[in-house]
Amino acid sequence: MKQLMLPAFAAAALGIASCGGASTGEQKDPVTAGTENVAAAPVTENVLSEAEKAAGWKLLFNGQNLDGWRVYKGKDGKTWSALEGTLHCTGSATDKSDMRGDLITTDQYENFELEADWKLAPQGNSGILYLVTEEFEAPYMSGPEYQIIDDNNFPEKLEDWQKSGANYAMNPPSKLAAKPIGEWNHTRIVVNKGHVEHWLNGEKVVDTQMWTPAWEEAKATGKWKEYKGYGSAQKGHICLQDHGSEIWFKNLKIKPL
């Protein structure tokens, strides 16, 4: 999530940016529903099962290095590394240097299902962006963002569309589903011909359709009205945001649809 200073954009206008709407009813993730009380079997991190391979899943992080990733626009960033089986971004409240940078996949994706586990530092702020292109100064100028933030302790007041699981500045989450800071969260993002779903810890929190008249109106009247390229690409990179906060990712995988 870009800095939360939005004096030029009315919160009321953003409030209508449901563009197909976050789902208001409680919906359980069919992948995890019914497993809440089942003892977890031992899990090997950052690998695909034979069934996942057969279904077309691709591992995005091998747990050992940054193969398949690079910093946005080829920048020589120094904040991302493979650390103890996680894809780790260092945090800094003061370092705004050119050494910071968002991380993108070398490959691009059009229609896909993405899964990732993440853990955020206290008062942290980050995100997973998709359909990102390199035409602009920053990834958020093109790619929609799955918001990741410390909902309860972030040092600035948050609007609903800024909370974890949101389609940032477009669709607020239908409920708050993030676990307490310090615990691992599971994210699913589905993008299929403009239909977008955000899932957080087994709960569907956003269900919306891009490129409809309602979506175009929300873009034209909210935060993105000055960013003509926002959400325009139908194919692009997956991006992990370096917002100056420490964050860890693991079990990143994608399945083209």
Rank of each mutant, 00 (worst) to 15 (best):
T106C: 02
L103N: 07
G165T: 00
I104M: 07
T133S: 14
P122T: 01
L114H: 09
A166C: 07
P155T: 06
E84H: 14
E183C: 00
D102W: 05
M99K: 02
K119H: 10
E135H: 11
E113C: 13
V132Q: 02
E134W: 03
P122M: 05
I181L: 15
N171G: 11
S97H: 13
A178Q: 00
L83M: 13
N125C: 00
N167W: 15
M170E: 01
M99I: 15
E183P: 03
H186D: 08
A178D: 04
H88W: 13
H88D: 14
K179Y: 14
G77D: 08
K157T: 06
A121Y: 04
E145W: 04
H88N: 13
G85E: 03
D150T: 01
P180F: 12
I104S: 04
M99T: 12
L83K: 15
T106R: 05
Y146M: 11
E115T: 04
G127Q: 00
T94S: 15
T90N: 14
D95W: 03
L114V: 07
S164T: 12
K73F: 00
K78D: 07
W184F: 08
N167L: 05
Q108S: 13
S92Q: 10
G74D: 09
I104L: 02
G91I: 01
I149H: 03
V71M: 07
D98V: 08
G143A: 06
D102S: 05
K119P: 04
E110T: 12
G77K: 05
K78Q: 13
Y109G: 13
G101M: 09
G85S: 03
F154D: 04
N167Y: 15
Q123E: 14
A121V: 10
S92R: 14
E115H: 09
S142N: 00
W80E: 08
E156D: 15
L103Y: 11
D98F: 10
S164L: 06
L114W: 14
A177K: 02
